[in-house]
Computed example of a mutant assay.
Amino acid sequence: MVDTEADALERHAELLHAYARHLGAERGRSVHTRRAYLGDVRHLLGFASRRGIDEIGDLRIGDLRAWLGSQADAGAARATIARRAASARTFLRWAEHTGRISSDPSLRLVAPKRHASLPGVLRQGEASEMLDLAAVRADDEDPIHVRDRAVLELLYASGIRVGELAALDIDDVDLSQGVVRVMGKGAKERIVPFGAPAGRAIQGWLAVRPRLVGDQSGPALFLGRRGRRVDARQVRSVVHELLSHLPDAPDLGPHGLRHSAATHLLEGGADLRMVQEILGHASLATTQIYTHVSVDRLRRSYEQAHPRA
């Protein structure tokens, strides 16, 4: 009797559980990253089951290439295929190191390179308009509007990720020094500076925060209307809603503010390695995409302004 895909995943439940523990306890991966990695591995195991492969030790390089090829045939994006290839390599390397397989078949697995797409960013004037609008709304003293202003100012000032912002506690912010302590990917802590406008917005929020505090607030810096720690979805809604009032601005989420902060730092003359440190990138190559953004915008401005462009 041939196993169904569900049977295969059930048979590998202990393996997946052990791998999840490894990603969390030993690699320090976030919940979101663990979910993505495990989803990719389940996809691989399901594909292997349909090919009659019951044990991961029976996987060969040809099976892995066929798996990636089937996704390309189904129209999967290059970035998705590249991520799944990386997930498979990480999983099979772990399986070999823990003695679950005798050799790693993914050593020669090559995935298509991702397109180096340029991230969407706000122009400096658009960022200022957005923050000015947030400040005007905060004048009504609704604590949520005061919070929104502080959230947007801090996101743009620091370039931190939305998940990092949602996880901040009150003690993570040092207003006297103008810095925030952030726990980034891989449980790596970094100190990120922010400017005076963000500091004033945070002070304004801390003054009204007690009006939202409830039993589940704890030390969370930013709260929702019911007193719980703000979550990433709420922050995304705030960014999209504010930008919807600016007719010429692109529709970006919190990550767009991170891109904008990095681009504007480089346009202002910041050192690339300093920007890498602020953003918490493990590789300088990741940060270098923002130099392309700046050059691209410079080229567009030149073409619009020079009579012989």
Rank of each mutant, 00 (worst) to 15 (best):
G46H: 07
E10L: 14
L59W: 05
W205H: 00
L279R: 11
D215N: 05
A261P: 03
R200C: 03
V2K: 10
G199E: 13
I160P: 00
S128P: 00
V239G: 04
L68G: 08
Y156Q: 09
G256M: 09
D231H: 14
V239C: 07
R123W: 08
G269T: 10
D172E: 06
G214I: 11
I81S: 03
L109P: 12
D248K: 14
V293E: 11
H12E: 13
A167V: 07
L59E: 01
L118W: 02
I170K: 14
Q304P: 01
S87G: 12
A82E: 10
A232C: 12
H32V: 05
V146M: 01
V239P: 02
L38K: 02
R147F: 05
P105H: 04
A6F: 00
R65I: 00
S87R: 09
D251Y: 00
D7Y: 00
Q177S: 14
D132W: 01
L257V: 11
Q234A: 14
K113P: 01
K185V: 00
H22G: 05
L133M: 13
R228M: 01
A79R: 14
L23N: 13
L165P: 15
S283P: 02
S117Y: 01
S301R: 08
S30C: 07
V230Q: 01
D248T: 15
A201M: 09
A166R: 11
L59M: 06
V110L: 15
D231N: 15
S70D: 15
D54G: 13
A261R: 08
G69F: 04
R65D: 13
L246T: 09
I191W: 01
R258K: 09
W205A: 01
L118Q: 06
Q234E: 10
L16G: 06
R225T: 09
L242R: 15
L223C: 03
A135I: 08
A207R: 14
Q276G: 04
L206I: 13
P210A: 04
V41T: 12
V31M: 03
V31P: 09
G24S: 14
G218F: 12
P197K: 04
R93S: 10
A285C: 04
S102A: 15
R83C: 10
M130E: 09
H240Q: 12
L175Y: 07
G62E: 13
S176H: 10
L122F: 11
A48F: 02
I61Q: 06
A86H: 06
A166P: 02
D140E: 13
G195T: 02
G163L: 01
T287N: 12
S30N: 07
E10G: 09
R161D: 07
L265S: 01
R50L: 10
L16E: 13
A95S: 15
L68T: 13
A135C: 12
R149Y: 03
R108K: 08
D140Y: 00
G253C: 10
